[in-house]
Design a protein around this nucleic acid. Structure first.
Lengths: 223, 223, 223, 223
DNA sequence: GATGAATGAGCGTTCATTCAT
DNA sequence: CATGAATGAACGCTCATTCAT
């Protein structure tokens, strides 16, 4: 656990090391405002609206993020960081199957509340190094989580760690098409998906194989 | 089966019965161009780009579709019609479980090829009568398909017809996050989902209950 | 009177001598529809709206009038013809002062009912020969009307025939600024203007002199 | 008189108190450009033309006036303010009849120079609060001006303050139909109108009554 | 001859981004 | 540093006019 401290990721919020206190505060307010705005209205909200929400002038946003895309990336980065924390917490528990369930529940709920943002997140990934770093850290946790569950026989053996984030998006998408109405609907499809992960006598091997990380990256890039 | 022919829906492409031959051809070219453009670039492509793709002037589009939204609706309508045809074909087969699989395979592949369009389709549903009509027809087929599979014991009993379109979106989303690369990846997640539909000794009832059509509509409206 | 028949103007409706009966009827319907449309909505109504009102296809309008401007001219021509008839009727009466009043009442009421059209009429005059012809005929009647009223002393002597159409527009404009509400308001300002035409002991000569026809034309052209 | 200073209207050009110096200058240039453009070409000139005339990008206009209509309103507001100043100056003079004449001369000349703008002004009035305020202030001055002239017997008694703006439009329209050519022609019709305001032994009461302010408003609204 | 269809130029407006205070 | 102001390119849409049936 403390070893985790050792290889802790660098501060996730960018080149802020040099920022004055007020600038740092502004940056945080901007990211928070953007996150809210994206969650409520989708990525197409105007920069002006985000600036107003943050209580700063619009030019201030561009001083911190030279592009709207960079701001989007910062928001995604924040979310992924939180997701990573969730994953780490899930890995520490005693019950592997439960850990996976808890992680997916948290992740999916988060996505579902974030209308339109996360489903687009993939498209925004474009090799951004900090996001890649987070992605890899997440994948490491997924591997631990999954392998332990498979070791105890509660998840079919041919599932791969790379499948987990895919499932996460998939279940979130299920709930999102209907706006998660009635609220909490996502739990129905999460339950169905989880029950589908259990080994079953009639199982035939999954095919084709799970995408490698490189393929995932290439997939993202093609968007 | 032939009775199905009897209550076939009216021609799905609108009040085009009165159009002159050239106009009809142009209309078709516009819808096709829009479909391609939406599939490749998403709904936010400019009308001008669609017009160019179709080889017509931009005003020609507005002669047939008084609004861009109407054009979007026409494209969705077309896709849903095709989906309905697929569903009907699937319903006629002998093997219920296979019918469901074949339908989902076709539906998901279609969605996956159509990056960004169909995932947004829901948001565009807003009570458009022709789309509602198609939705209901589709649901009727889903009901037949599902109930037969449940009757023979190949699908768990607590799945509802309304779950099927949700699953369709869900699986498509799984593949879409990675751009379906390597190509055909969707089959992995389709297989996983289908195997998850089988009854299992440890099954606990799905909860919360599936959304009703009204709830789905309300969900769409809230977007 | 019959001498008036002698120098009757050529048919006012244009090059229709060659038209087939149905074409002639269509032309008339178009002009009538345009007149209504202009009266209700102003000159900026779309050609399509006029076509619909006339019950013809839009291209039919352009078959008869190669330009929207030509159609406007045709409508103005029709109105001026009617005005000329009114003027001639007014000239035949016994009471000169009353003749002037009756003419102006009719002319102004007509203008006022024709929201936005006639006030723009001037700007559309551009040397159109048929309109010039009508203008001259109207002016001839104005001269008769005015000179007789001046001869009997009911109108001040320094008023000129060219002033009459100006007054007509002027009074109509008075009522039009308030949409002639309450209806018939134009009569207030007509009465005021007419009473202002009477000779008065304190009269000083009007200055500058009335515009000549050439100056009027140049004025129109400058628009 | 100095009390008039006391209840002077707020600055008429809007909430510009907060604008930066350069923005204020640009705003003024835009309004000036719009005024010129409207005067020369009418209200239908494109925003792009106005922007070019003002030497700014088109989007700059929309930063200050969220709508073209707002820009129109601003121009009208400016003109009305100037008219109000003229009216106040006219009210301070010793000779009531002369005050009225001077005011109308100024007002009409202004309108005549402004081809097409002011005649449309009415249609743009729609309850805009600042314009209503100015209208009321103007009417107050008209009342003073008229009642004093009537008290000394130089204007017929049945004229009402509401008639004055109507006359203003009316006389301006007289000159406008011929483009005020030869230049200054408006003075002819102004003189005629003014002489018509004098009491006359044969006067019969004006009818129907002058429109109330409410009726004027309703008339405007009906356009 | 009559028409529906087609169209390019233009409209008012928005927005991510750059400039100047 | 923070900001309001400025901007050009693009958007969805309209319209007088031309084309093709």
């Amino acid at each position: 656990m403390h070893s985790r401290q050792g290889h802790r990721l660098k501060p996730v919020t960018g080149e802020q090391e040099e920022l004055r206190a007020d600038a740092r505060r502004n940056r945080a307010r901007i990211v928070a405002a953007a996150r809210e705005a994206f969650a409520e209205d989708g990525l197409e909200v105007g920069v002006a609206a985000i600036a107003e929400r943050a209580g700063v002038g619009n030019a201030t946003i561009f001083r911190r993020f030279s592009t709207k895309q960079e701001l989007i990336t910062a928001v995604i980065e924040q979310r992924m960081s939180e997701l990573l924390a969730t994953a780490r917490a899930a890995t520490t528990g005693d019950d592997p199957a439960d850990g996976l369930a808890v992680f997916l529940d948290h992740a999916v709920r988060t996505h579902v509340e974030d209308q339109g943002l996360v489903e687009c997140a993939a498209a925004q990934f474009h090799g951004e190094p900090r996001l890649v770093e987070l992605r890899d850290a997440l994948l490491a946790e997924m591997t631990t989580l999954l392998r332990r569950a498979q070791a105890e026989g509660s998840v079919r053996a041919d599932l791969e760690p790379e499948d987990i984030p895919v499932l996460m998006f998939s279940i979130a998408a299920a709930a999102q098409v209907v706006g998660d109405r009635p609220s909490g609907l996502y739990r129905r499809y999460l339950a169905l998906a989880l029950s589908g992960l259990r080994p079953h006598p009639d199982d035939v091997p999954l095919a084709p194989p799970a995408p490698s990380v490189e393929e995932i990256d290439r997939g993202f890039a093609a968007r």
